[in-house]
């Protein structure tokens, strides 16, 4: 593997509470090449905060710190806000969970995608239009000429998510962070959107961090998996080995998912006392 795209060492994110500061991410370390990494865990395990911390998007009163946070040779912690803004979107971009809340409701789809491009590159208006159409085409939106003029409330959830993906990919980033990109979508649309992300990531040789609580989905679309619990990585393994996972937390999560050929009368529930020591 070539030099890693992203190196994270001892990443910490904390928030103040009446009982003092609480670490929601406790010393997370990993490196990422041009590969697909999955981060799984329950809500509150700190997986989304990890994604945000990489973009330095933790807002006050939250605080983040790391021994090392290097993206493609650039020390992210040494960057000014202005420097970070140059990176966000252009080099590292993030797909958010719900297109309903992440798209600007009073701007047409075409304008929003064009805005993402114009912020990072100066292009002639004609070229911008062409790139937007091309991008919409590559996220498999039928009739992009019509969709450009629509407002977000006029498109379906799956289409909205594809528009988000188009917006995030149009500046051609090197690293894509997808935070639960499909949990607001249907199964049938889910597979389409993930296949699309997968294809674009492979084609352009990007790095991908897929954050999700769905173990099966992550196992299907990633090369490597980190399982997070209470701000720490409890298990790290190749996606193919997930079903041989050894940590009781990972095993518990796997067992709690109903199967298509379900014969169990009751689903096993996580016994939270078992791994409280870790």
């Amino acid at each position: 593997m070539s030099a890693p795209l992203l190196e994270v060492e001892n990443l910490r994110v904390s928030f103040p509470t009446p009982a003092g500061r609480v670490d929601v991410v406790k010393g997370l370390s990993f490196t990422l090449g041009r590969e697909r990494l999955g981060i799984v865990g329950e809500s509150g395990s700190g997986k989304s905060m990890t994604g945000r911390a990489i973009l330095r998007l933790i807002r006050s009163p939250g605080r983040q710190s790391a021994d090392r946070l290097v993206f493609d040779g650039i020390d992210l912690q040494a960057q000014s806000e202005r420097g970070m803004r140059k990176l966000r979107g252009a080099r590292i971009s993030m797909i958010m969970q719900d297109p309903k809340f992440s798209l600007n409701p009073v701007m047409t789809v075409g304008d929003q995608i064009a805005e993402a491009l114009k912020t990072h590159e100066s292009l002639a208006r004609k070229d911008v239009g062409a790139r937007v159409l091309e991008m919409l085409h590559s996220v498999r939106i039928n009739d992009p000429e019509r969709v450009i003029g629509l407002y977000p409330h006029e498109v379906s959830g799956g289409m909205g998510q594809r528009i988000m993906i188009a917006m995030m990919l149009i500046p051609q980033p090197d690293l894509l962070i997808a935070d639960e990109p499909t949990s607001a979508l249907d199964v049938s649309v889910q597979a389409q959107v993930l296949d699309l992300i997968d294809e674009l990531v492979r084609e352009k040789g990007m790095g991908l961090i897929l954050i999700s609580h769905d173990l099966n989905l992550v196992a299907r679309y990633c090369d490597r998996i980190l399982v997070m619990h209470a701000g720490q990585v409890v298990e790290s393994c190749a996606a193919a080995d997930l079903y041989q996972a050894t940590h009781p937390y990972t095993r518990g999560l796997l067992a709690a998912v109903p199967k298509m050929e379900e014969t169990r009368d009751e689903l096993p529930v996580l016994d939270r006392s078992e791994w409280s020591g870790t």
């Binding site: 329950e42 809500s43 609580h213 769905d214 173990l215 518990g252 999560l253 709690a256 998912v257 109903p258 009368d265 009751e266 689903l267 096993p268 529930v269 996580l270």
Partner: peptide
């Protein structure tokens, strides 16, 4: 809901 909580609710409904 999350998978682990989903299991609890499904068990409850059953």
């Amino acid at each position: 809901l999350d998978v682990s909580v989903q299991a609890e609710i499904l068990n409850l409904l059953k």
